[in-house]
Design a protein around this nucleic acid. Structure first.
Lengths: 214, 214
DNA sequence: ACATGTGAAGTTATTCACAGCC
DNA sequence: GGCTGTGAATAACTTCACATGT
């Protein structure tokens, strides 16, 4: 409940994020969930009940056999682990098709995690507000990242510009990236990169779809 | 080299997809790579050299200590595992911001894996061609999926419509999904679902970015 | 009864370490 | 000498099984 230095695995963090959203979005008879059992949460999130209990165990959250887990308390507890106290400010690099979709997707979705600035060299976008987010020229990156206290970046530019963008942001103190460019970013071990490769994900599906067909 | 019934793990399949793209895109002195060592491929794809060798071992591909792996042969071999012989046809459900970004992203990217039809109830999109892909009304789904021999679907609609879309496609023989809606699809075990949760991915980065900050 | 909490076992994934081969 | 190929060891993750609580 209090100790923040427990080590959570990557997988567990991802699932906590899902549990939270499930708890926030799923009403029970039109009102927020009061208590929930591990098997219910598991079904909603798509995992097994034991796994849910393990995850909650590792964050030190406990329920009771009669009522299950208190949803509001659980949300609080997950928030303590996932959210930075004052929220985290994010920069989006690249306002192409993917970038704009990400803006639309993330705007107002998580109050503690918001894209506060977008950057794109294309003058068609610079100094305009897109999906509620101001778009700047890359020339302003130094100033804006510092002014807005930006701590992480979403890379949505073509492969060729990805490493450059990451390097500039890292020099400004950014320590985490969500990278959609299909290229492995070279970063020091103190920086975290979450690589999303759409083509890979699609090909995985194609592989399995084909297996079950034959 | 020949036997197709080796079981590849999910992780291995993903990496094979990456190896392929790295090999296709990385020229060596302005011409295609001839041979490549496991540590070179590892660096380009962002994994360890042993892991690369393991993966190639499991698909039965071998190189030689002097020259490394023959890139062209390796591409061929990976293709034998990942690609369906005549290619795989994909349907996109939902032509909102994310859907259009996916269309832009995938069009002409992988010849053996193409989005051949998009569906959206919004009449603003139906019967128009967007990013080179024809967009249909959901009413035409039955006909189009059969005519175009569609085997997998990308779900890019809001959560509320996701299960419905999946159910309709499954009735038409679709056995694999890439699901961007933040909801666990209920499918029989013979159907594969690759769930992509953007919010979860972003929150993972925020968590680690925060760790290194403190 | 039925749910939580958790040690122990099982499973899967990755790395170590080294033999064999250009 | 540096690379491939791979058994063995290690690490990471998930499930089993059951003691405990209400």
């Amino acid at each position: 409940m209090t100790n923040d230095s427990i080590t959570l695995s990557d997988k567990t963090i991802g699932r906590l994020s899902l549990y939270r959203r499930v708890l926030e979005r799923t009403p029970k008879n039109n009102k927020p969930i009061g208590h929930i059992f591990s098997h219910e949460l598991a079904a909603l999130a798509g995992f097994s009940a034991v796994l849910v209990r393990r995850d909650l165990m590792t964050i030190g959250f406990s329920g009771n056999p009669k009522k299950g887990y208190d949803a509001a308390e659980l949300l609080d507890c997950i928030g303590k682990f996932l959210d930075a106290p004052g929220g985290t400010n994010v920069a989006l690099i690249g306002v192409g098709n993917l970038g704009r979709a990400l803006l639309a997707y993330f705007t107002y979705r998580r109050p503690m995690l918001s894209i506060v600035a977008a950057f794109d060299a294309n003058p068609e976008f610079t100094n305009r507000v897109i999906q509620g987010c101001r778009c700047y020229s890359p020339d302003d990156m130094e100033r804006v990242v510092q002014e807005k206290n930006i701590r992480m970046g979403i890379i949505a530019v073509p492969s060729v510009g990805a490493q450059d963008a990451a390097d500039r942001l890292m020099r400004l103190g950014v320590t985490g990236f969500l990278n959609f460019a299909p290229v492995a970013l070279r970063v020091p071990s103190s920086v975290y990169v979450n690589q999303i490769d759409m083509t890979m994900e699609l090909e995985k599906v194609a592989f399995y779809a084909r297996q079950t067909k034959e």
